[in-house]
Design a protein around this nucleic acid. Structure first.
Lengths: 203, 203, 203, 203
DNA sequence: GATGAATGAGTTTTCATTCAT
DNA sequence: TATGAATGAAAACTCATTCAT
């Protein structure tokens, strides 16, 4: 691993654990085994470290859901794959996600172009989900709900999980299946498992 | 308004706008028209200001949803009132909520008892929703979903709205009705409006 | 005990334990069960508290050694009583003495007249001892050493005990007898016990 | 002189003149011609400055008396050299000694290991003197007094001189010879000068 | 590229003291 | 006499950033 990557790795972990403001660049340098000047040699400022972490994360996420959405099957199948990828991504990239969710505030402060950069990326995330919904509505697998707004609700739901989880005040059990069911009932046109059972069993 | 209240008011606004770390106690004092020492006379530390803001907010919220849940009608009606109160609360207390959602991290750092205090309060919030669900399941107005986990999903959904809204990277339209519909489809046993229409109109 | 006395008592204990600078008047007030303003009502300033403690202590000490010196017997007997009183005084007034020994620095800073006041008191202490020596030299019980300088050495010895004891870096055993013997050998004209023994036993 | 040494020098002088608490780090920086941050770059805290001063002083003192004690001649000769070195050391290192004697209190407060560190050093000082006494008792030049306790009394006497001197309430004349005589009468087995004279002159 | 000494602005916090009640 | 809210000056310390080597 290059020095630059090591610095990024250490910074991600420390930002996740202690918060951006509470982490000194000197500590990052020390733990990465480099001089403090080296941090600023690779990343012009502390804020740039944060941007690098968030940017890489969001780009990876967009790449992942885009690929998930492109797969075969109905729109609902595609959307389901997007949701499933999101859940897995959340677990595998917890530190970076924690940083991105807690510290976006630090990004929104100063640089206008940076803010717009991330707004654009978020827009693309919403769009991938919206297209799945539209595709599902075209092929009849998803209800006739407003596509963009519903994409937002899905985004909100996924964000909410991360927010509550990283906030650390409520202990969350494994919710993946339930969330998926909740979305299926809310969106899919197919009969719900339990209702199918009830219908078949003759309630 | 007492000096103490004025300080709290100013602090809430500044924390919401600039963030906790980026707000100097000297600025709070200046804008509140008091000496800096006065801030520390009333609130022993800067962190205590944050605690006071969050605590008042959460207590008010608990009181509100508790009252909403206690009303007449079915469990689903109660839950719907809780959701509606939450939406209104979010709009009327935006500054405090912004602070609480962004800065809880600062609280979770040091004092163990404080962390437990807020964990307990969050638990009570979840519980109110869970009881609505159980009540609805008893009276047949809510589906047989796992009560606690479903309460968590509602909590996540409401938290997600605030998170996305206060993060400021995605512009949210008015989503109240859609969110309520989404929940109704996910939880209520009653026929959905659109389906009723379809059923009545004979799709 | 009057409020004033209670304040003084608490202050003495806290100054002894934590030091003058490290003790806040608010803490004194709290522990004395009075309002902070009350402290300043009785003692115009924090420094005055220190002065009151030291002054009372020194006055009591002067009174004690003066009385001890005035007693019957030889000059050496008088001096011995002074030394013995000093040792007892040190033990019975440990807190006040600790304060006086550690914090005189705070006194010497500002007020010139205060400095002179305490210089005068110290002079009187030295004088009492010098007179014992002179009386002993007149009656033949004390060697022909320079009286004032020797009084200073005794003062130094007694101060040294307190300094080392309150400094807390060296654990002191009971030294009273040894110190007395050391002084006797240094000052008295009478034969030392051990030498008397050796002389009598025929070494 | 390096910046670090310059800072230490300035700090020693200011601590001696004004006291530790009354000296601001900003003043040290200003007088040393460096930025305030530079002080904290080299010494992590203000307290560390004090530790550095005291530690260097005590180490130097131990080295000095150890060498003095190791010399040739009787145990009493060695002890006399130790006393003489101590007197000279006191005069040549007055500032550091003043600081160490007045401000040890600040050291004894927090860090337990630091307290033990200095306790250990003081123990070594006592030990050097004790060994001189034991050596003198073995070669017959020093009386049969308890060695450790007597070493403590010498330590007390030397400490007392510094205490009284730095306290500034009593004006001390040159006492070196008298102190030495006082110790000789207390410890040495050889005849005292005045007594020899009296004996020879036939009192 | 890599270093780490140096910087100085900025922050929270403490505290003796005052004064209106 | 007693109170305690209010003050504001002062202090230690932090830290991102720079730059000469």
């Amino acid at each position: 691993m290059s020095r630059k990557e090591k610095i990024l790795e250490v910074a991600t972990e420390l930002f996740a654990r202690q918060g951006f403001d509470a982490t000194a660049t000197s500590e990052i340098a020390r733990r990465a085994g480099v001089a403090q000047g080296t941090v600023f040699h690779h990343f012009k400022s502390k804020e740039n470290l944060l941007v690098a972490i968030c940017d890489e994360l969001v780009q990876d996420y967009i790449r992942g859901i885009t690929k998930a959405a492109e797969g075969p099957g109905s729109g609902w199948n595609a959307l389901q794959r997007v949701l499933e990828f999101s859940q897995g991504f959340r677990k595998s990239r917890l530190d970076s996600i924690t940083v991105a969710f807690r510290e976006t505030r630090s990004l929104e402060k100063r640089p206008h172009e940076l803010h717009e950069h991330f707004c654009g990326l978020m827009g693309r995330i919403i769009e991938v989900k919206r297209r799945c919904i539209e595709r599902g509505q075209a092929d009849g697998s998803i209800r006739r709900v407003p596509a963009h707004e519903t994409a937002l609700i899905l985004h909100i739901l996924l964000s909410g999980i991360i927010h509550v989880e990283t906030q650390g005040l409520v202990k969350l059990p494994e919710l993946d299946t339930l969330v998926l069911d909740f979305c299926r009932r809310g969106l899919s046109t197919s009969v719900y498992p339990e209702e199918r059972l009830r219908a078949e069993g003759g309630g």
